[in-house]
Design a protein around this nucleic acid. Structure first.
Lengths: 131, 131
DNA sequence: CTCAAACCCTGTAGGGGCTACGGAGTCAAG
DNA sequence: CTTGACTCCGTAGCCCCTACAGGGTTTGAG
């Protein structure tokens, strides 16, 4: 299959596939007579794996580690556990900080219920103070 | 005051201040005899404003809009309201999607309670499936 | 058979918001 | 007089794509 079909099969953009190839996340496939990339089912599986990871916001550096686990089935999977654990921690931290941010923004917004001139806007006034 | 003192006064990194100047968020200050930037209190106020916005994760493009409101005190402050409202929406969306992500990750993690070999790791198995 | 649309190729530049050099000049304290 | 902290400028890197530009190829409709 060609790159466009691989893209359709996996939901990964064509340009992104070529980017992953440049980055070494997917191996460079053989080419047909016209120089087009020719992929097999293994490529579909590998790219699906990457896409799934990315949908979980796992960084490419971590995806790389997980892929190397896949490539060496004998190694222990402690790395996979660690990657997922670290990801959970990151996500929870981001949720917490976004909650705080939301509260701050709502408080800020409530300072200017009705539009006025910018000179007297309490939002701008507040933003002019240190955080 | 020089750029280092401005940085200390506002908590904005020196390199970042120069970056903001290149981007036109802060005006280019006058220079002393040696070519060093010489800032005044207005620069402190402007940079403090920007820093406060950034601490609220407001994008520089939006910060730019808010700054232009500050520069024209006669204009209505509907723009400021809109920026904050949009920011609240963005933050809430991110929180929601992070919550979903967290749940997915926790479910994934629970599939591999005890480390095994990567060939039989249920986390890797799951990641190999489409999202 | 012809022609246009849709695909594919490579390489490079841009985005956001900094951050980190390298290689130089300046200034105050010891 | 020297050391160290500061400043200057310009450029490259970070992450993960995304979007060209300027070509060649395949496919299907007329």
């Amino acid at each position: 299959m060609r790159v466009g079909q691989l893209a359709a099969a996996t939901g990964v953009d064509v340009e992104t596939i070529r980017y992953y190839e440049r980055e070494g996340l997917v191996p460079a496939p053989p080419r047909n007579a016209s120089g087009y990339r020719a992929y097999d089912e293994a490529a579909v599986r590998r790219l699906t794996f990457i896409r799934h990871c990315r949908s979980l916001d796992v960084r490419l550096a971590d995806v790389r580690q997980l892929l190397s686990l896949l490539d060496c089935p004998d190694r222990g999977c402690g790395t996979a556990d660690a990657v997922v654990d670290a990801q959970i921690v990151r996500v929870r931290e981001r949720i917490a900080s976004l909650h705080a941010l939301e509260a701050t923004l709502v408080a800020l917004r409530s300072r200017c219920a009705s539009p006025t001139t910018s000179a007297s806007c309490r939002i701008l006034e507040e933003l002019a103070r240190p955080a």
